[in-house]
Amino acid sequence: MPAALDQLTQASAPVPLTDAVALSGFLGLVPDPRGVRGRRYQLSALVAAAAASVLAGARSLTAITEWIADAPAWACRALGFPLAPLTGTVSVPHPHTLRRLLVKLDGDALDQAIGAFLTARTTPTGPGLRAIAVDGKALRGSRTATTPYVTLLAAMDHTGHVLAQRQVADKSRVAGGNFAPRLSRNRA
């Protein structure tokens, strides 16, 4: 499951369908990695459906695709899936279509869109200082041809909402020398 969608599991009192429909308004920040030819479903509908399934409890790509396949027609229609022109029924994507799309999505752009949605969803705490924790993590099982692992740097408020998350070049820059002193100087 994409790490950005995992942020949605920490949403307080989620309402899967309503929140996913609201999220689709923020998905304009996410570029569509698919070719222009052969697009049958809108990007916002596919990602909103994946988000609704995560909010409903799906924790894997298989569970996400099963939730979408089992969703009632009115829910799929609300998420933005089109009616089949000949039958008038709502068609949903094949599981492989959704898996291919989720793998190709720009993780940073999706993370920004979900972060903006979660920020807009929360109520402001009022005037004053806001505590933010910053931490870096190496993702297990994220080896690529050029790197032994992918490292993410995340900023989170103390209610558990991820404010921003970025992939960084090297874990040593997060944990040690360069990042921590700049953060402490800015706080003073």
Rank of each mutant, 00 (worst) to 15 (best):
T119W: 14
L153M: 12
V15A: 14
L163C: 08
S172F: 01
T87Q: 09
T89K: 14
G88C: 08
D19P: 04
P93Q: 06
D157Y: 02
L79V: 01
R37P: 02
L163N: 04
L98H: 01
L43M: 15
L43H: 09
M1R: 11
V15W: 08
G126A: 11
L83H: 09
G57S: 11
L152W: 05
A154I: 04
H94W: 11
H161T: 11
V103L: 12
R34V: 02
W74K: 12
L183Q: 10
G141R: 10
A145W: 05
A164T: 10
R173V: 10
K171T: 05
M1N: 04
D108V: 08
G176W: 03
L61F: 14
R130H: 14
T97F: 02
R166A: 10
L86S: 09
L129A: 15
V54R: 04
R59V: 05
S12H: 13
S53E: 11
W67Q: 11
T159F: 06
T18K: 13
G126D: 07
K104H: 12
P16M: 02
G28H: 12
L46A: 10
A155M: 06
F81L: 13
L61S: 10
A78D: 09
L27V: 00
T147P: 03
G115I: 00
D170R: 15
R185F: 07
A188L: 14
A45Q: 04
H161V: 09
A51S: 10
D19I: 01
A113M: 09
P127G: 12
A169H: 11
F26K: 01
V30Q: 02
Y149Q: 12
G128D: 07
C76W: 00
V90P: 10
A169Q: 08
G80M: 06
T9V: 08
K171G: 07
D111A: 15
A154K: 03
A20Q: 03
A56L: 06
T97S: 15
V21A: 04
G136C: 07
A51G: 05
N178R: 14
E66H: 13
Q10S: 13
F117Y: 15
V150P: 00
V168R: 02
V168S: 04
A51N: 07
